[in-house]
Every structure is written in C-alpha cells, then in structure tokens.
C-alpha cells in the first residue's frame, strides 16, 4: 500500500545547541490507514505533527508527504501542499472565531484549488459539499450557517472541525488530541463519525492522544516513547 506519509531517520531540535527533541528512525502512514500514537502531554507528539504537515523542518532525515520530499521543497510550496493534501483537527480552539460554522468548513477550499477540484469532481459546490459533510456528522447546516462558532458546544465544534478537515477529501488527516475535551459518549460518537467519513473517502488518519484506550479502535497503535529515539541517543 502506498505511503501517504513517510519519515526516515528524522531528527529535530528547536535550535542547534538544544538537545534533540525528536528522532524517528522510520515511520509511515499508508493510504486509508488509521494510525494511533499515544504518549504523555508535552513529549513532542505535536512537533511530529508539525513536521508531518511541513510546518516545521527537521535538521536531518527524509520526510515525504505523498511522495514529495518536504525538506527540499520551498516553504510556499509546502504551504500549498499542506493546504491541498492535509486536513487538520486540533484538541480545541479549532475554529476561526470570526467565521460561522459553514464558512469555517469551507475555508480550506479557499486556499486550495486541488480541494476545490476534488469537491467539483463529486458534482457539488463547495458549500453543498460542506452541508453534506455537516449532515453526515449529525449537524444541522441551516442552523450552523448563521450561528457563531463560539455558541456551539465543544462536541459540535469538534464535528465542525472534522468536517473542515474532511472537505475536499485530503489523503491525510492529522488530529492532535481531538477528543481530549469530549466526554466518553461524545468521544465515541465523534470517532465513529470521523472513521466513517475517512473510510468513505479512503483518507488516512494520524491521531495523537495521551488517552491510550483509544488505540483499540485503530488499524495500528504506537507508543510515542517507542517511536521517538531522541532520549536514546
């Protein structure tokens, strides 16, 4: 199965004099695969996600997103690639506060022609595709079109954020502690909906969390301490 994301001997430190924060010998995510990475808060998991999406660059190693070598790519091209091929879900504070929910879902398509094209290939406008996704995630698009995002519950906000990450069917979705602010039932429901949509569009999911028990629901579950060898060197 072709790798959507691939890291080989990647080392990262915040500065040349600082001790290495991250050293990943080999790590990859296949197309459509659901990978869970668990570890303690503040251990560097988010840095891995920043590297995986091309926002940060490692000092050493090879880092490929859909076959594109991010370490040699100009920063503007990396931004374009991330906008086109990656969807992102944060733990909380996920949404642009000045935009309503529907506008938030549509926002990535404003930055990416590739996402717009993929939406158009489904025979839908960006707004219609966003409404379909919101419905699939059990949200009322009519109501959300006029509602301020700050008035939504945390669970609703996470589903809006998921819809935004899924719109345009990017090959990879990165989720950084997306369920930490949700209670058990809402968390399970959120993951059900997210998995269903990922499966529908064959989207790979890389989800990091400190909650180890989530791992049973994924294709692959990894411990961050096993993946990151920075402390060993």
């Amino acid at each position: 199965m072709a790798a959507v994301l691939s890291l080989q001997d990647v080392r990262f430190a915040w500065s040349a004099h600082a001790p290495p924060l991250l050293h990943v010998k080999a790590f990859s995510v296949a197309r459509g695969e659901r990978v869970f990475l668990h570890g303690a808060s503040g251990s560097g998991k988010t840095t891995l996600l920043n590297l995986s999406s091309g926002v940060l660059l490692p000092q050493q190693g090879r880092l490929q997103l859909l076959g594109h070598e991010l370490t040699t790519m100009p920063s503007a091209a990396r931004d374009r690639l991330r906008g086109a091929e990656v969807g992102y879900i944060f733990q909380m504070f996920n949404l642009l506060p000045a935009f309503n929910a529907l506008e938030n879902v549509c926002a990535p398509c404003r930055f990416s022609a590739a996402k717009r094209q993929r939406v158009a290939a489904q025979g839908l406008s960006v707004e219609d595709a966003a409404r379909h996704l919101l419905l699939a995630l059990q949200l009322d698009p009519q109501q959300l079109a006029t509602q301020r995002v700050s008035r939504l519950s945390v669970g609703q906000q996470q589903r809006v954020a998921a819809a935004r990450a899924l719109l345009g069917a990017p090959p990879l979705i990165i989720a950084d502690e997306p369920t930490s602010a949700l209670d058990h039932d809402v968390r399970e429901q959120f993951l059900d909906l997210l998995f269903a949509q990922c499966q529908k569009f064959n989207i790979a999911l890389l989800l990091v969390s400190h909650a180890r028990e989530l791992g049973r629901r994924f294709d692959r579950s990894l411990a961050w301490r096993d993946l990151n060898r920075a402390g060993d060197t």
Partner: peptide
C-alpha cells in the same frame, strides 16, 4: 494565536 494556527493548518502561509 489559535486563529493563526488554524489558518496555517488550512493552508495559509506566514506571508
């Protein structure tokens, strides 16, 4: 900062 991070995540460049 959250707004900046979200914009970056959805493809906005620092510029």
């Amino acid at each position: 900062r959250q707004e900046m991070a979200v914009l970056r995540a959805i493809g906005a460049s620092p510029r």
